[in-house]
């Protein structure tokens, strides 16, 4: 791998529709890959977990940010993880958490996954290497 190839982890903490964070992050993510760099993981934290809701149904002439991100992640095989503690508090669960907490439904959109902050810690440790970056996208209110 050439020395000028960088690995990015993107952390999104702003929710779609109440902030521009998911859209700014998507524009950035596309540019990262265009430049030949890689994205090892997208991590949704705090309000950012709302991006992974399969139940968001904006009007057909507006951007569906969950779908836009989902398509991007699938096309480029980039893993995306929603923090479990943030997600459970905000009503975002996959099937296994639905069973564990005996909830009436699950609503995690593919290909997002649910995992702990350990995944973020791992990216943070990796970023101590010069060719690795963790970039945060916060809400703008």
């Amino acid at each position: 791998m050439p020395a000028d190839i960088h690995t990015f982890t993107l952390v999104i903490t702003g929710a779609p529709y109440s902030s521009q964070a998911p859209e700014t992050a998507l524009g950035f993510a596309r540019a990262v890959l265009r430049a030949g760099h890689t994205i090892d993981r997208v991590f949704l934290y705090g309000e950012g977990v709302h991006l992974a809701s399969s139940l968001a149904s904006p009007p057909s002439d507006e951007t569906n940010w969950t779908r836009a991100w989902g398509d991007f992640l699938q096309e480029h095989s980039v893993p995306a993880v929603a923090c479990i503690a943030s997600a459970l508090r905000r009503g975002l669960v996959n099937e296994s958490e639905q069973k564990r907490y005996q909830l009436p439904a699950s609503n995690l959109a593919a290909p997002f996954e649910i995992a702990g902050l350990g995944e973020w810690v791992e990216s943070t440790i990796k970023s101590s290497v010069q060719s690795s970056r963790v970039i945060y996208f916060h809400g703008g209110a």
Partner: peptide
Amino acid sequence: ESLDMAFSLAAF
């Protein structure tokens, strides 16, 4: 949530 981040770094 900041505190959770601090605790998880400390855990590792």
